[in-house]
Design a protein around this nucleic acid. Structure first.
Length: 577
DNA sequence: GGCTTTACTTAGAAGTCCTTCG
DNA sequence: CGAAGGACTTCTAAGTAAAGCC
């Protein structure tokens, strides 16, 4: 029933704690015990001096209506609250929580004045910041106690950290991008909404006094501990384990193993889709061109979405005619495709790429007689594509290409950019640059930090100061040398050596600062975290660290080291992805 | 030692992909 | 098939803690 996947032989009998086995029958665990979720704290009505005004007149709200009003008040400084859709959705849902009297009276959001509430919450947060050390410590200790009690579970003989043991508190839904549901009320979750999952032979978590769970089940084919249905999209939310857990780590490892299997057959697959560009069948041509984009540009699969339920975003299979432009010639290049669309989280994907003539001709064909809002690949969707991929390689899906291309790019770039003679901080710059190449490939952008310009300036100031310091040190060295030439004694010789050392030290410090400035500048609009956490086989990084004698702490912080414990333990310096 | 900046952590929304059901 | 449901991964922004600076 169980197969040993890998055993981690650590000296002194130590072990990572999850080296044993994996089940082959689809079960994820045998034993699971936990304390259930931590609920959001109950609503505390505002003090009576904090007033709400309607049409300029004070109005005391019922606790139910007041609570929802505070959600809006807390967001008053956010631009969300100026958006029409947000305001409309909020007001509609708020009215549902009002009593008859309030409903009759409060008919126009524009006449509502939340400023006192807003001021009150700002003052509260100021007060929190101004708390004494002791008070802060007390809160910290209480959080730690809660973490120890609810933040861990027992799964198959191991105490594992839970990722999110707190239930999401009620509030206003904030979608990303142009979300049609922004501003809607996210309901408070109660025990009777909660499904508990644990093993039969465990001590089941108790619901709060006087309440009942919706259900307690014992499904060991899934990994979640707690679930509930959220009221905005009607989707299910889960409490699951931390990335450091055995169950997540193994899954992560498998993901990279699948990507490595793709490496072995990717040439064959590429040859195949090149052939398919010539197919007589439209659906096959479309499939082949889409796959080419997924492979070459690391696009996401692009599932269909329910129109009007979410922001209008697309991936590869859901691209529409309006999202690409074709240029037979552009800036001296032939057959250029310009992509411009909103992807996941409404992040813009913009790219101009030259493609093979066959691809170009196919795209022209796909676009013939279509409206801008028609699907580019009308004979294709993700399930058709994935079924095809499954036939090409066991376990192959569209997203494996992203993982594969990200990881292989990191490996190549590391080889290309790391020079043996580099100081270690310069090697780390090389690492970050390799990481950056991947982030760019995967379109992991970020808004430039608000303080970016200023922080660059600060760094520049430091560099200038260091330069001055260096020229001073050099001058001193020079005069020490001259002095030594005249005196020709031990003492002055020693002085020269000391000054030499000083110059060297300052030179290195200057270089370090300059590297830091380069790194930061290049990172202005690029987010490295997502690829590091989700796309790059950590064994590549671990191997690189070992090869160049860079401590792994320079690359991975504590949380990341916990998540990648399996890789840190497994990979040696000649690991090849 | 207090203030500012940077790094890390958490939250929770938005994807992918598989399974189930009519 | 196609739609819906379910489980799990990926993603950015916001919040918090820690580090750096005067």
């Amino acid at each position: 029933m169980c197969v040993c996947i890998y055993s981690i032989g650590l000296s002194m009998g130590g072990c990572l704690g999850w080296e044993e086995e994996r089940y082959t029958d689809g079960s994820k665990w045998k034993f699971l015990e936990h304390k259930g979720p931590v609920f959001a704290p109950p609503y505390e009505p505002l003090p009576s001096n904090v007033k709400f005004y309607y049409d300029g007149k004070h109005m005391k709200l019922s606790p139910e209506a007041e609570e929802v009003a505070t959600f809006f008040a807390k967001m008053l400084d956010h631009e969300y609250t100026t958006k029409d859709i947000f305001r409309k959705n909020f007001f509609k849902d708020w009215r549902k929580e009002m009593n008859a009297e309030e409903k009759a009276k409060l008919t126009d959001l524009k006449k509502c004045n939340f400023t006192e509430m807003s001021e009150y919450f700002k003052a509260q947060s100021e007060a929190r910041k101004a708390m004494t050390k002791d008070e802060k410590l007390k809160i910290k200790e209480e959080n730690e106690r809660l973490l120890q009690e609810y933040g861990f579970c027992i799964m198959d003989n191991h105490r594992e950290r839970i990722a999110n043991f707190r239930i999401e508190p009620p509030g206003l839904f904030r979608g990303r991008g142009d979300h049609p549901k922004m501003g809607m009320l996210k309901r408070r979750i109660r025990p009777k909404d909660i499904i508990i999952n644990c093993s039969k032979d465990s001590k089941h978590p108790e619901p709060p006094p006087g309440t009942k769970w919706k259900e307690v089940r014992h499904d060991n084919k899934v990994t979640w501990l707690v679930s509930w249905t959220e009221n905005i999209q009607g989707s299910i939310k889960y409490i699951m384990l931390n990335p450091s857990s055995r169950i997540k780590g193994e899954k992560d490892w498998q993901k990279y193993e699948t990507a490595r299997r793709l490496k072995k057959c990717v040439d064959r697959i590429r040859t195949q889709y090149h052939e398919d560009w010539k197919s007589k069948e439209m659906r096959i041509r479309q499939r082949a061109v889409a796959l080419y984009f997924i492979d070459k540009l690391a696009l996401r699969a692009g599932n269909e979405k329910e129109e009007g339920e979410t922001a209008d975003t697309v991936g590869c299979c859901s691209l529409r005619v309006e999202h690409i432009k074709l240029y037979p010639e552009n800036d001296g290049q032939e057959y250029v495709v310009e992509f411009d669309f909103l992807g996941k989280d409404s992040i813009r994907y913009y790219n101009k790429v030259p493609v093979e003539k066959r691809v170009f001709k196919n795209l022209q064909l796909f676009m013939e007689n279509k409206e801008p809002d028609d699907d580019l690949f009308d004979r294709l969707n993700t399930s058709v594509l994935n079924k095809h991929l499954q036939e090409l390689m066991d376990g192959l899906t569209a997203k494996v290409f992203r993982t594969y291309n990200a990881s292989i790019t990191l490996q190549q770039q590391l080889k290309q950019l790391t020079m043996p003679e580099f100081f270690s901080f310069k090697k780390i710059l090389s690492y970050n640059r390799a990481n950056r190449a991947v982030a760019i490939l995967c379109n992991h952008q970020r808004a430039p930090p608000k303080t970016f310009e200023k922080s660059m300036q600060n760094l520049q100031t430091k560099i200038d100061a260091k330069r001055d310091q260096l020229s001073d040190a050099k001058r001193e060295l020079k005069s020490a040398k001259a002095d030594a030439k005249v005196r020709r004694d031990e003492k002055s010789k020693k002085a020269v050596e000391t000054k030499k050392k000083a110059v060297q030290r300052i030179e290195e410090q200057l270089m370090k600062l300059e590297v830091q400035a380069t790194d930061r500048e290049e990172n202005k609009q690029i987010a490295l975290g997502t690829s590091k956490l989700n796309y790059l086989d950590p064994r590549i990084s671990v191997a690189w660290c070992k090869k160049w004698g860079i401590p792994v702490e320079k690359i991975y912080n504590k949380t990341q080291r916990e998540k990648f414990a399996w890789a840190i333990d497994m990979a040696d310096e000649d690991f090849e992805f």
